[in-house]
Design a protein around this nucleic acid. Structure first.
Length: 269
DNA sequence: CACGAGACCTGTTCGC
DNA sequence: TGCGAACAGGTCTCGT
């Protein structure tokens, strides 16, 4: 479910309830959720820690603790929820932290792809990430140079978190449609003007996603409403909002991809 | 280096 | 209704 706007929505919601609280107890219900350290170490080091800040880097949730850092990646189906301490664990809860204010923080993840790290050096996990797309440092010139440095299909490149951090399948399709670019276009073949359009599209679509509290599809519901404003994603067969042509669903880099064949003509190759 | 296939998992939806 | 196949918001590793 979660891409940058969904993760941003989650941390904004949780932050006021988490900052200043202490971890009283740790209930690890699916051991493989833990990337590092060992379960025994994890519990020992986490208990008693105070949550000092809640931030986001790309799709990672970052809890800054009095000593150490808890990083959480929700992957496909993860969710982070505040519960009443008295509430019984739910079916897919993988980790539950009981907090000092009588609530608990539950990491729920049906597909078990999500991961949690407890580390003194968050860079061990985050260092390989590319630029943060909404950062002031991510200029269209930086984007242009990075695109030129590769000869790859645009969509898989935009999904590569070491190239640009935070986009997922939804926002990539939306941004490429907004910029009028075909997802298979080679990254070094687009003009400076097209890069400018794509740069603006990426930032606009992420900001719109955040403004609408993210997108919620299917049974993994979070209360966002961006799903009601998709231009192409999950809209195969429906008319393109710009030109009316039927939206196509194709496969690019093994990911379902949605394009308007009129607005996003193939280039180069 | 770029790309495809397969793995990791469970749940929902679609087609027959 | 039943049942298998296809598919899902992500990322990693391996082989070509």
């Amino acid at each position: 479910m979660p891409e940058l706007p969904e993760v941003e929505t989650i941390i904004r919601g949780l932050r006021p309830d988490l900052v200043g609280k202490r971890v009283q107890s740790v209930d690890l219900r699916w051991a493989r959720t833990l990337a590092t350290p060992s379960p025994v170490e994890f519990k020992k080091r986490l208990r008693g820690q105070k949550i000092e800040a809640v931030t986001r880097r790309a799709k990672y949730i970052h809890l800054h603790l009095s000593k150490g850092h808890l990083l959480i990646h929700l992957r496909m189906s993860g969710d982070l929820l505040l519960r009443e301490r008295t509430q019984a664990p739910e079916k897919h809860d993988r980790l539950i932290l009981t907090l000092s204010n009588g609530s608990s923080l539950a990491f729920n993840d049906a597909r078990k792809f999500g991961r949690v790290w407890l580390t003194d050096n968050p860079d061990e996990v985050l260092a390989r990430l590319g630029p943060e797309p909404l950062d002031a440092a991510f200029t269209s010139q930086v984007f242009y140079e990075r695109l030129q440095a590769h000869r790859r299909q645009l969509k898989p490149l935009l999904l590569d978190q070491s190239f640009l951090a935070g986009l997922g399948n939804i926002y990539t399709d939306e941004a490429l449609h907004m910029a009028g670019l075909h997802p298979r276009t080679k990254s070094d073949l687009i003009s400076r003007e097209q890069v400018e359009d794509l740069w603006r599209a990426v930032r606009d679509v992420l900001q719109e996603g955040i403004r609408r509290n993210g997108a919620s599809i299917d049974w993994v519901y979070r209360g966002g409403e961006f799903q009601n404003h998709f231009r192409v994603y999950d809209r195969g067969g429906e008319p393109c909002p710009v030109c009316g042509t039927a939206i196509q669903r194709i496969l690019v880099g093994q990911r379902g991809t949605h394009i308007c064949p009129t607005c996003q003509p193939k280039v180069g190759d």
